[in-house]
Amino acid sequence: MHVTAPGHAAPLETSTGLDHRKLLMWAFLGSDCLFFGSLIATYLLYRGKSITGPYPHEVFNIPYTSVSAFVLLTSSLTMVLALAAIQRGDQRGLKAWLLATALLGGVFLGGQYFEFTTFIREGLTLRANLFGSTFFTLTGFHGAHVTVGVIILLSLFVTALRGRLPRERHLNVELAGLYWHFVDVVWIVIFTVVYLVEAPNIVGAG
């Protein structure tokens, strides 16, 4: 799990052998699981319980969201390539893959923005019904996580551009990667639960 690269910046010994920041990131991600878990639980509890429309099957465009999910998952690959680049001291590769990851994240966010505005035009708002409240809150908080990730990636990219992300600071990229992969994994769960599992919503219309 712990990659000891040559020339690690701070050879501070820790009791577990894990860097403080890495342990912090793992603890945070564990905690964030409970956060998304509670949001998803809320969504599941209210699935098919909306009294009025629009219902999920009326607004969802599965092929469209599948493409956007594919884009986000691809960004996990470029993230791995960015980490591999800094670990072997390839600064050009690092910059290219960091930027690619941030751009793919940006495309996903753009897709989400377009999806949200389309839904709102079709009458699905935060206030419309239980589906609207739970859908926008769950996917919105995921989008907020992606946004934070894109900001981190762009900050790393700018730092690398200015030559201040040398090989011995690979942990910065690794931590951003941990966060980024987590956000992707959460999207797999959300995409499955929200979009792919057929909601029995027609029943709720009564």
């Binding site: 809320t42 319980k49 009025t52 019904n129 239980l130 609207g132 409240s133 809150t137």
Partner: peptide, 9 residues
Amino acid sequence: TNFFVTAKG
């Protein structure tokens, strides 16, 4: 939003 609005189910 409608998380605890019983009138909305």
